[in-house]
């Protein structure tokens, strides 16, 4: 199986949240992103620190992650980012 690049993982997480109407449970995102729990948490922390998503709770104290404007912008720019990085072979 092809190893996913960091940019691709970020995109997959954001798309998973977007696919659920802009807000998704961590279990759903974890399932969709296909990562280990440790890596998943690292990515979520990174996305929160970058202002791509934010953590919320409903009235039953269920945790959700909501995609923000910067996150939507990343999805929009993803193909440009990927093409740029592929052409200069910058993927890690």
């Amino acid at each position: 199986m092809k190893k996913r690049e960091r940019t691709e993982i970020i995109y997959d997480i954001l798309k998973a949240i977007q696919g659920k109407g802009g807000s998704a449970k961590p279990t759903h995102i974890l399932y969709k992103s296909n990562l280990s729990t440790q890596m998943f948490n690292d990515y979520l922390d990174f996305l929160i620190s970058k202002g791509f998503i934010k953590k919320t709770q409903d009235e039953k104290n269920n945790k959700f992650y909501m995609i923000l404007d910067k996150g939507y912008k990343f999805i929009e720019d993803y193909h440009f980012i990927k093409k740029f990085m592929d052409s200069y072979d910058l993927n890690e």
Binding site: R6, T7, I10, K50, I81, F84, M85, L90, N91, E92
Partner: peptide, 14 residues
């Protein structure tokens, strides 16, 4: 564009 991608992805090579 490399710096703007770095801000979004934090990839060191970029």
């Amino acid at each position: 564009f490399a710096f703007s991608i770095y801000r979004k992805t934090a990839q060191r090579f970029v």
